[in-house]
């Protein structure tokens, strides 16, 4: 029998993978991928809670998260392409302008 806790633990594991990626990686494109993983983990949690409460609000929040993720990709990828055209690299350390 799969309970709510199973889904929440899965959601936490996926979120942790995304968090590890955000902390560890230095490539901006892979940072975006890690962010997507974290958003998806949150979606699973919302959908699971919504089901076990018998409430649709969880699914609604998940829909709006998907909308936010889509906008984030559009704007973020635009900025990334622009940055790559300017500097020829998408490494996070190329953005360190301040020395210290």
């Amino acid at each position: 029998m799969i309970t709510l806790t199973h889904y929440l633990v899965l959601s936490a594991i996926l979120f942790s993978i995304g968090l590890a990626g955000v902390i560890r990686r230095k490539n901006l494109l892979l940072l975006f991928f890690s962010t997507e993983i974290m958003l998806n983990a949150a979606n699973i949690g919302f959908a699971a809670i919504g089901k076990f409460y018998g409430d649709l609000t969880g699914q609604m929040v998940a829909f709006f998260i998907i909308a936010v993720a889509a906008s984030e990709v559009a704007v973020g990828l635009g900025l990334l392409v622009l940055w790559y055209k300017r500097t020829g690299t998408i490494d996070l350390e190329s953005m360190q302008e301040m020395k210290g």
């Binding site: 799969i2 889904y7 899965l10 494109l29 975006f32 991928f33 997507e36 998806n40 979606n43 699973i44 959908a47 699971a48 919504g50 089901k51 699914q59 998940a62 829909f63 998907i66 993720a69 889509a70 990709v73 559009a74 990828l77």
Partner: peptide, 26 residues
């Protein structure tokens, strides 16, 4: 997972928006 959670529409949106639009954009 969404189909298992009785969120059929969310599952379809996940495939269409994420694997269809977002990954295509990437």
């Amino acid at each position: 997972f969404f189909f298992m959670l009785d969120a059929d529409f969310l599952g379809a949106v996940q495939i269409i928006v994420y694997t269809g639009a977002v990954m295509a954009l990437y």
